[in-house]
């Protein structure tokens, strides 16, 4: 029998079941979803579980919030990443895109420099899991479409060349069924996980699905998930469809 690819659990139990163990180790997975769907929380689960359960150092590259805000938000879900940072198991880099952009202009840096910086930190600290939150914002730092296209391929290549298991987070437009904003991100990655918010009357139902996972079988249904005070909980038995029927 063919040996299947090694898996890295995401730390979200129901989702790991859907993924038959986790995302493929040493590869890039795109996590896409609309605003407020829980992408950053997903990222925190992945990194937190890497540190706690697998002894893998994590790196979170944010382009949207400040350190403190992220630490506080994730502490709400019982994930103490600040402590992990103190122990040297976790590193958070980046900040709000406007500040980053301002500083980049000042020192005349481009997106390639940022990628080199990420590589440097990964090597220096021995990081094994990386999250880029989000690649939409990262591409906003590119000067043009051409640089943008190269950036995505470059970051995906360099992270897997360094042996990291990575999540690239991508924000999709509200209500859209697209996997990504530019319609190309999904081609440079090895896996795609999509979070949906589906409107049902006066409320949103949240669903998650695995659109692809190269070299591995996986659940193909859209499953129901919730954000609770413990973070994201996926119900791998309940598809969004049956859930709707029940209501």
């Amino acid at each position: 029998m063919k040996k299947s690819s090694k898996k890295s659990p995401t730390g979200i139990k129901g989702l790991d079941k859907m993924l038959m163990g986790g995302v493929v180790s040493g590869r890039n997975t795109l996590v896409s979803g609309p605003c407020g769907s829980g992408k950053s929380t997903f990222a925190a689960h992945f990194l937190h579980s890497g540190i706690k359960d697998h002894g893998e150092k994590g790196m979170y590259v944010t382009l949207e919030e400040t350190k403190e805000k992220f630490y506080n938000d994730m502490a709400e879900f019982g994930m103490d990443l600040k402590a992990a940072e103190k122990k040297g198991d976790f590193v958070l880099v980046g900040g709000p895109i406007a500040s980053l952009h301002g500083y980049m202009e000042k020192v005349n840096a481009n997106v390639k420099n940022l990628i080199e910086e990420i590589e440097e930190v990964v090597k220096e600290k021995g990081v094994k899991r990386v999250v880029i939150d989000s690649i939409n914002l990262l591409s906003m730092l590119s000067k043009d479409d051409d640089e943008n296209r190269k950036t995505l391929a470059m970051i995906a290549n360099s992270l897997s060349a360094l042996g990291c298991t990575s999540l690239l987070i991508s924000e999709t437009k509200e209500g859209s069924m697209d996997l990504s904003r530019y319609g190309m991100e999904e081609f440079v990655v090895d896996g795609v996980i999509v979070l949906y918010l589906i409107r049902e009357g006066s409320k949103f139902i949240s669903g998650v699905t695995v659109r692809k996972m190269r070299g591995s079988n996986h659940d193909k249904e859209i499953r129901y998930y919730q954000i609770t005070n413990k973070g994201i909980v996926v119900y791998p038995q309940e598809s969004v469809f049956t859930n709707k029927m029940m209501e």
Binding site: G94, A109, L114, V121
Partner: peptide
Amino acid sequence: ISMNKKRSVLRGDYR
């Protein structure tokens, strides 16, 4: 020196 500056954008302290 200028390369080091360019390579420490993400590691800057942003509040």
